[in-house]
Design a protein around this nucleic acid. Structure first.
Lengths: 343, 343
DNA sequence: ATTAGCACTCGATAAGGTTGAGTGCTAACA
DNA sequence: TGTTAGCACTCAACCTTATCGAGTGCTAAT
């Protein structure tokens, strides 16, 4: 168990290192305001903290740097969640100003969060389990091209252009759209493909001549791949961090951040509340020198999305956690209001 | 005027430097297959070429490197436009496979071009002078939220969620949409705002009670800001180039590439055909060490968009020019066919 | 006009020297 | 027994110096 003094020293070291990015030495600590014991004493305590695995040295005569275990302890025990009022106000404004467009809220939040923190923000759109189809529209552009538009109850719009096979009449299209809206409106997006295949296809045969092709096209245009939407803001913030003054690190960071699938799967793990993964805790090779902080937000009762901040392990945990707390809370609240109105 | 031999040497040096990124020395040249004179002779010629400004040295005893003037001469006189057949085939496939979706073509082209070249691709969507409104749709999501959808004759879709003020009845919305579609369908996007203000506003007053708010919202949602669309692919390719093994250069490159307005204005200059801007020729501080190659593509008769490749001045000009030739040609052709079908 | 030869230049790399911030340990002290 | 002053030691960072080699320019011979 750690003594009061060890806790104090650990905290001071981590705070200092988070700010300066330089290893912290005993003399520097002893000079701080609220430190009343000598450098030698601190050295002894630091040696103990190192033995316990909370601190590390970069080389045998360097100052101390927090280890992953040190950060973990810091996050779990040493930071009292403080509210940053200015930050909170900024966030509230963003959300209120964009209250009526879900995607706008998300997009803006990602940018603001990056600007406030200088880290990289990743927001995962809500899981689509509960998102429902609102309406399908097909607008013909010419005799043989059309654009299909799919609107969900969350106001999300997907569209896809396609060609109209020769055999299909405009009236056929109209019929098909009517059938689809009749049958599919209110159906969760995730069940669309299934419903489409099991129920709609047979119905259409009755009304629409030459189904094969149109079926194929519609299927391709609307039902296929609705990848989880990922909003990433402040990628180039990472270039500002002193730990990224090495070209190779920059390269591998960009390689990682452009692999959206991997990122999505990293974020999906997160449950309720705020989760902090420090360095190797992520089990993902690509970010073994970074920390990932995720917070869930909710849309309605079952849908959850994830907001995350990615930064060096030397991260301003206190501030970031407070920010994510506020943001996820505000988003959830705003979306709850919005969702209630939509029922 | 340059002698035959000087031309040959200039060409060999530039070809070699483009491939290796290392200054080229006289001995290395003299060893090449088709070079039959000695290193000393080459040194004399190189000195002359340097006097004329086609070559430079990185330091007093280094090999030679092409100057901007050297690249300029190379591009203007030394490269016979050769067709790369494999590249051409890849491009044709992309375009044919995505024939029916304009944005898809553009998106895919940007990615393929980046993959083939290892440079950064920038594609500027067609100017909107001739793009016309096809249809406006407003889909209500709930009693007080709705999403407005605007479709152009090119199959482009814009959407925007907004709130419905209390005073407005669903029937009002329907009326408004009908009026707008009656009056605005076929109107060039660029004139939408004007037409909306001059003609529609007054008409609506007759039919729709409490116009002020709805007017405001619709205006904001649909008419405002349709920025030129920019597709950028292969940003991180630049990290592979040896000239970018300096963190500061990477930083300023990303700062530049994220400033979309500046990029758009750089590209807009380009007229017909292929234009090569080498280093400082761009007059843009941010890319004074890069080359920008632009090619126009056409949509219909009056609309032109721009495809561009951005890379180090040490660029594979021959290959890149040939690629852009093929791509702009294929895009223009595909779009012509498509446009014709749409009339 | 061409080329061999040679002195010279300069970046790149490695080797040694100095500095300063930091440590661990010991012995004295409260 | 816990704390502290003192001191020898370590090591990265920085600077200087030496060496090497790829390259040049110039001169003189062909």
């Amino acid at each position: 168990m750690l003594t009061e003094r060890q806790l104090l020293i650990l905290q001071v070291i981590i705070d200092d290192f988070i700010e300066s990015a330089h290893p912290v030495g005993s003399r520097a600590i002893s000079k701080k305001e609220h430190i009343s014991f000598s450098a030698a004493t601190i050295r002894n305590e630091m040696a103990d903290l190192e033995d316990m695995g909370f601190l590390e040295k970069t080389h045998s005569s360097s100052g101390r740097v927090p280890s992953e275990k040190g950060y973990r302890y810091y996050v779990d025990h040493l930071i009292s969640p403080s509210i940053m009022h200015e930050d909170g106000d900024v966030i509230k404004h963003i959300i209120q100003d964009n209250f009526f467009e879900f995607e706008q809220i998300v997009q803006m939040s990602a940018e603001v969060l990056s600007r406030l923190t200088n880290y990289t923000t990743i927001i995962l759109g809500p899981e689509i389990f509960e998102t429902k189809l609102k309406q399908i529209q097909i607008i013909t552009l010419s005799s043989n091209t059309a654009v299909a538009i799919l609107v969900t109850n969350t106001g999300h719009v997907e569209h896809r252009s396609f060609s109209i096979p020769h055999e299909i009449e405009p009236s056929d299209i109209e019929k098909m759209v009517n059938i689809m809206n009749d049958q599919l409106s209110g159906v969760p997006i995730i069940q669309l493909a299934e419903k489409f295949n099991s129920q709609i296809a047979s119905m259409m045969k009755k009304y629409v001549s030459n189904l094969e092709n149109s079926y194929h096209y519609l299927n391709a245009a609307l039902i296929q791949d609705h990848p989880v939407k990922l909003y990433i803001g402040g990628k180039s913030n990472m270039l500002m961090q002193p730990e990224f003054n090495d070209v190779d690190k920059i390269r591998s960071f960009y390689a990682m951040i452009e692999n959206e699938d991997e990122i999505a799967s990293m974020l999906k793990q997160s449950k309720d509340g705020i989760k902090v993964s420090i360095g190797r805790e992520n089990n993902v090779e690509a970010i073994k020198e970074l920390s990932l902080i995720t917070a869930a937000y909710h849309l309605g009762e079952d849908q959850t999305g994830t907001i995350a901040l990615l930064g060096p392990t030397r991260m301003e945990y206190r501030r970031v956690i407070s920010l994510l707390n506020i943001l996820s809370h505000e988003m959830t609240e705003a979306l709850y209001m919005w969702y209630k109105n939509n029922e």
